[in-house]
Design a protein around this nucleic acid. Structure first.
Lengths: 329, 329
DNA sequence: CTGTTCATGTCAAGCTTTTGTCTAATATAT
DNA sequence: ATATATTAGACAAAAGCTTGACATGAACAG
């Protein structure tokens, strides 16, 4: 019977069974590029030339999808597609790594470097395990900055600061858990409900096995909820099968993973591969967090979109909202 | 044939394949200089003369980008562009190091007894990963039963039911995590704040290493908060040292542990002993949850009070309230 | 003090190139 | 039949290029 399954694909791909093939729509969803753009990049620049079925449909391999993802990142960093489209994939990886890390214009650094108002207060409250003070500071920050500003200018930096303090031993894991718990609850009422509207697209948020730090996932969930997604929040350290199951059951449009620490888990690659395999094909995989870049290769391999920060996540989510639209004036 | 490929690029880059070429936009982003300025520096001073494509677009090498960055720093430090524009790059480096000691601000980045009314609703919502339905059911239960009844007659049985369904495979760990997340947030506003009043006694709530299920701890925390304690909630799976540290730092009157699964962790005894040893002498250790009785012996050994259910916990907490008062203010 | 000159950053107009999107007609898939 | 793909070509917005002009402020001569 496994024979029967394989037979379905024989007419399509003659080579490896491991080299799966994907229709353009899947590629479009997974890369965030429109099918138009994918075709025109092929036609004009030969950026990616897919196989074809006997009936002329395009079929993309995982490698090609990776390549398209790299091109997406590189062009978003400012490079023109015409100049990079024909580079070898290896060079694209270098370019993506290079422009990804330092793509920031230097000019607005000085201006906005002003530390968010309540941040120090929050950090002190965490150090003191003082939930009242932490809640108060968060509340004031929320009224001052609005929920988007709260997330991006206070909670995200706070999460980062906690990570740093933890790594250098100033605070312990208990402080980190404590902060997670308070922030979790706080976000529960500060941000629009995680529940989302009826027709809203679904985002599953979690952290893979071994990744114990929850704050990043929390931030991603809150950001998505803010943008009108229905968030299925699963918390930290879940096996691939569980995440995939939740994604399947909730018909999620995307799954967001937060990777913070450790940065060198040898098992994570396998988890990611399993996740990609078990997830519905059309579900998109997103990854963010401090350690995401450390797993860049593994993430590319499974076609995951890497997010630089919360703003980037927001942009991607906006793109994913409308996977396909026709009657736009 | 690899020759054929390289030839296509000869007109563009004559040297290394690693020396990528960048459009002016990328250069502008990376240096923070406007494209205008970059062009005018080229035209007037020949500061940087890029290659051109066949269609006359400028193409900058990494070296040239570095040079522009140096010029940016130097001019911002007060030198006039006309005087430094033609210096050799090496000299620029010295100048930049000398004048701009303040240059880069580095950034980096982000129920056994009578079936309670809403219980089935809750269970179904968990099965369906439907956070809206779960929240609604909990809310209705809260108004019907009050917060104490909500905890004892809905959430506690729900936690137990989830545990059973998980053990028999009806639901997965993802569902359990999902339920924890929703309930966590819900308790955050339904129950009196975890923060507690100023003079309130402090209870640290956590789950020891290896105990991944958080719901029991959550219930204990909510119950204590309801009774006017100040709760330092640390969540699941914390090492003894961390819990003890938190207890010490917050001058906790008691530490409550929730033990649910597994029931036969051989390491738990050691963790408990270490915890007892590291904790302040006068802090009392409490243990509850489905698996508490399985560890009865170890708990006896460290003098922990075992709680049979939430009502029992409440009674113990009331007893612990009065002894020993501190003059902290 | 005043007027001139120079250095420098910015802008606009007019043209070309690049690139994403759209339409129409046709074919395939489910 | 309806949704999805395919091609070719058209279109328009965005980004680049060049030339020339303008604004500001500093240096300087009278």
């Amino acid at each position: 019977m496994s024979l029967a399954i394989e037979v379905r694909y024989v007419y399509v791909v003659s080579s490896y069974m491991t080299d799966s093939h994907h229709a353009i729509k899947v590629v479009s969803l997974r890369t965030g590029l429109s099918a138009h753009v994918i075709r025109v990049w092929e036609k004009r620049y030969g950026a990616v030339v897919p196989e074809r079925t006997g009936t002329n449909r395009r079929l993309y391999s995982e490698d090609q999808i990776e390549r398209l993802g790299l091109l997406r990142d590189i062009t978003r960093a400012g490079h023109s597609i015409g100049l990079v489209a024909k580079l070898r994939t290896e060079e694209l990886r270098n370019l993506a790594a290079a422009s990804g890390s330092n793509g920031r214009p230097a000019r607005d650094i000085g201006g906005s470097s002003g530390r968010a108002p309540r941040l120090d207060e929050c950090i002190n409250a965490v150090k003191a395990l003082d939930s009242r003070a932490l809640e108060r500071a968060l509340k004031e920050a929320a009224t001052e900055l609005g929920s988007q500003g709260l997330l991006q200018r206070v909670i995200a930096p706070l999460a980062q600061a906690i990570g740093e303090l933890w790594r250098d031993g100033t605070i312990t894991a208990a402080h980190e858990h404590f902060a997670s718990a308070v922030i979790r609850v706080f976000l529960g009422h500060a941000v629009k409900s995680f529940a989302g509207a009826d027709g809203a697209p679904v985002l599953v948020v979690a952290t893979p096995v071994g990744q114990l730090h929850e704050l990043g996932a929390l931030l991603a969930g809150a950001t998505a909820a803010n943008l009108g997604w229905r968030v299925v929040y699963l918390g930290a350290s879940l096996p691939a099968a569980e995440i995939a199951g939740a994604a399947r059951q909730s018909a999620a449009r995307a799954v967001a993973l937060s990777l913070v620490y450790p940065e060198d888990d040898p098992l994570l690659g396998g988890e990611l591969a399993r996740l990609r395999e078990l997830m519905p094909q059309e579900t998109i995989l997103l990854a963010g967090g401090r350690a995401a870049s450390a797993y860049g290769e593994a993430l590319e391999k499974v076609g995951a979109l890497q997010m630089k920060d919360l703003g980037h996540l927001g942009a991607i989510l906006d793109t994913l909202r409308k996977p396909d639209r026709r009657s736009t004036k």
